[in-house]
């Protein structure tokens, strides 16, 4: 549950709506990522939707909330894990042939577990995009801090 601090952020109406909506936005982002090989979307779009759910928290509850929830070290780790995971999936293709081979069994199309490595690659890209989106927020916070000091 999101900790409530009456003085920070927007009014109580915005906070209540944001508290309800954040979970749904997060869930929709995860759906877009996991169904990237069946329906339109994929890792890039879904990752940014997941990041937007955190931005909703930032807009409603103030900057301290997001800085407390997701420290910058977590974002760095997420980004590195996404990039290395994508490369690792590609390298595992050598186990049965060549770089970027589809080494997992390909199921029947239009099923959730199909298309070999594509769902895992989507998840890896989504991790990268989530961290990039959150990193953008941190960049703005740092920039605003700089401009206030001057």
């Amino acid at each position: 549950m999101i900790q409530h601090n009456a003085n920070k952020g927007m009014s109580i109406i915005v906070k209540s709506i944001a508290r309800i909506l954040t979970g749904f936005v997060l869930l929709y982002g995860i759906y877009i990522v996991l169904h990237g090989h069946i329906s339109p979307g994929g890792g890039f779009a879904g990752g940014f939707i997941i990041a937007l759910s955190y931005i909703l928290i930032m807009l409603a509850f103030g900057k301290e909330e997001i800085l407390q929830r997701v420290p910058q070290a977590t974002i760095t780790i997420l980004e590195s894990v996404g990039a290395i995971m994508f490369l690792f999936i590609a390298l595992l293709g050598f186990s049965s042939g060549y770089f970027f081979r589809n080494w997992l069994p390909e199921g029947t199309p239009f099923k959730l577990l199909s298309a070999g490595t594509i769902p895992i690659s989507n998840v890896a890209l989504a991790l990268l995009e989530v961290s990039l989106g959150l990193f953008g927020i941190f960049l703005v916070l740092v920039l605003l801090k700089f401009s206030q000091k001057k």
Partner: peptide, 27 residues
């Protein structure tokens, strides 16, 4: 590829090198 979404199949299978370069640029 057995992927229903052809864009995903091209992005992550046929042209996966491009996507790897893209991810590297973002990183």
């Amino acid at each position: 590829v057995h992927a229903a979404n052809l864009v995903s199949a091209i992005n992550l299978n046929f042209r996966a090198y491009d996507t790897l370069g893209e991810a590297t640029i973002l990183f």
